[in-house]
């Protein structure tokens, strides 16, 4: 009888142990979730937010969300090297140049469009800074002798090399690189983040998946105020 009972008792104890173990793992997971985002900011690209930089705004602890996190480039830290083009696991990088129209000067002599040395203001392909001709230059209007042009990025052609971004930085800095989430496969460890010399990549909540530079925020706020004023005037 006792012999018959031994396996049963062992099995029962084993079951208790397993259920407790599974429950313990779940509790540990719950604890981790609840603790998440409570400590001071880490310093590495692997943590939710990158290191401090005097130029960047103080980083807020990320809110706890059930959602996921995605990679994004902090434009204030980005140095516009060509790493995004080279290191993305996709054949054509998920990083593309983006135009912040509110900050753009609509320049005639656009240093993001023309090469910085010996530029000729002709739109022939040989005069383009962009290696794939992904920037469209469109005439907007003329004030006296001064012409204004709109520059838009053709994302189908853009390879994310950042040449235009580096060029535009010389002037207004309205072009910036961003991870485009319709293309990004959201690797657990972003290959570009590993290679990024400026540690400009960080995880951001998927609900707010794009970042702006400090100047861009100010310029967009100014544009919004202008629009609101115009909207208020028209009604």
């Amino acid at each position: 009888m006792a012999i018959d009972n031994i396996p049963t008792r062992r099995a029962f104890l084993g079951d208790v142990f397993r259920v407790l173990g599974a429950g313990g793992m779940c509790c540990a997971g719950l604890w981790l979730t609840l603790r998440a985002g409570s400590g001071p900011q880490g310093q590495s690209p692997q943590t939710s937010a990158g290191g401090k930089s005097p130029a960047a705004e103080p980083l807020q602890p990320l809110p706890r969300r059930p959602g996921s996190y995605v990679w994004q480039i902090d434009p204030d830290r980005c140095v516009a090297c060509d790493g995004c083009q080279k290191y993305c696991v996709l054949d054509v990088s998920a990083v593309k140049a983006v135009q912040c129209f509110a900050l753009c000067g609509y320049c005639d002599v656009c240093t993001g469009y023309f090469p910085t040395q010996g530029y000729v203001l002709e739109t022939g392909a040989e005069n383009h800074l962009c290696p794939t001709g992904a920037i469209n230059r469109r005439f907007v209007e003329r004030h006296g002798d001064e012409r204004f042009f709109e520059y838009t990025i053709d994302e189908q052609k853009c390879i994310g090399c950042g040449k235009c971004v580096a060029g535009c930085r010389l002037m207004n800095g309205s072009l910036y690189l961003q991870v485009r989430h319709d293309r990004c496969v959201n690797c657990n460890e972003c290959a570009i983040a590993v290679a990024c010399p400026a540690q400009a990549f960080r995880r951001v909540p998927a609900t707010e998946p794009y970042l702006l530079g400090k100047n861009m925020k100010t310029a967009i706020a100014a544009l919004e105020r202008r629009r609101q004023a115009a909207g208020g005037a028209s009604t």
């Binding site: 516009a80 090297c81 240093t111 910085t116 040395q117 950042g162 040449k163 580096a166 060029g167 010389l170």
Partner: peptide
Amino acid sequence: DVPSQPQPQ
């Protein structure tokens, strides 16, 4: 080695 930034005169 290869400068990715625009180079001055």
